[in-house]
């Protein structure tokens, strides 16, 4: 049982740093947490060096709360801003070469499936738009075609944030960024459409304006990946630095982009849909109306 890994050996508790004591006493392990409970328990996310007010931070923090079984989850990141917080989070975090996430996840998930036959291990990739749509494109697409059972979350800030603001394939046409001095010359890549073509079981697009919706989307994506097939969540996580969004206006920008071109949408394959309906029914029976989704 993996909860053993946060069971303190006899006598050592008082020597552990406060953050670990809190995780042991009041952490997110062994139970589902709702975003509405945030503030009343010790979160897995720890202090980190991402830019103040960065929407990506808020998204990741919410997504981590939403993971249905944190103690059985492994997260894979790559070079890019997101890994700054992921590496400080109380969940095993793999950080390999830039753009390798979905290939690494394929090997990892299969390896874990060999070793833990009866215990689902959730593998979640969280990487930037450059990491997934550009350098990691082949690995992403092929993991989907192969129907690898893990979740891919794109932290789509529409730019290479970590290297100082260059154009990515997910940048909007016309945007003037580094390495696109005359404005980007082609359209934003349609990764949602490509996911559909590749047969991804659950596909969602979300903006972190509504934490509950983010949480439900992530939970759905992870559970469907566990039982059905690959899932993909594309999240608009603006880069306030490179797009010069004043920190207090980050959420205004998110709401505006959501209205203009990034509205919430989700797609299920038939198999994913029937699994999810079954899951919801069961959950309601066990938990009563409380067990329903939060939004």
């Amino acid at each position: 049982m993996s909860l053993e890994t946060i069971r303190v050996a006899p006598g050592f508790k008082e020597y552990l740093p406060r953050e670990y004591q809190d995780l042991v006493d009041d952490g997110p392990f062994g139970r589902e947490r709702k975003v509405s409970e945030v503030g009343s328990f010790k979160e897995a996310v720890e202090e980190h060096p991402m830019c103040a007010g960065c929407a990506m931070t808020l998204f990741i923090r919410t997504a981590i709360v939403a993971l249905p079984s944190l103690e059985n989850t492994v997260i894979i990141g790559t070079a890019g801003c997101g890994r700054l917080v992921l590496s400080q989070t109380a969940v095993p975090f793999i950080y390999g070469n830039y753009g390798d996430t979905n290939a690494v996840a394929s090997g990892l998930k299969r390896g874990l499936a060999i070793r833990f036959k009866d215990k689902p291990k959730d593998v979640v990739v969280m990487a930037g738009d450059g990491g997934l749509a550009d350098i990691g494109f082949s690995a992403v697409m092929h993991s989907w075609f192969r129907k690898e059972r893990f979740t891919t979350v794109m932290l789509d800030n529409e730019v290479y944030g970590n290297t100082g603001g260059q154009e990515s394939g997910m940048t909007q046409r016309g945007a003037i960024l580094k390495m696109a001095p005359l404005g980007k010359k082609f359209e934003k890549m349609d990764m949602m459409g490509l996911a559909k073509t590749a047969g991804v079981a659950y596909i969602a697009r979300v903006v972190p304006t509504n934490a509950t919706r983010v949480a439900n989307t992530i939970r759905k994506a992870v559970l469907i990946a566990r039982e059905v097939g690959p899932t993909y969540v594309q999240a608009y996580t603006s880069c306030n630095i490179e797009y010069a969004i004043p920190t207090p206006k980050v959420m205004d920008d998110a709401r505006m982009i959501e209205q203009q071109r990034y509205g919430f949408s989700e797609y299920f394959t038939d198999e994913a849909k029937s699994y999810w309906e079954h899951y919801e029914r069961e959950r309601r029976q066990v938990k009563g109306p409380d067990g329903e989704s939060e939004d």
Partner: peptide, 11 residues
């Protein structure tokens, strides 16, 4: 102040 959305946290 790494978290500006600090209202979320009590711990």
């Amino acid at each position: 102040g790494a978290f500006v959305d600090n209202g979320l946290s009590h711990h």
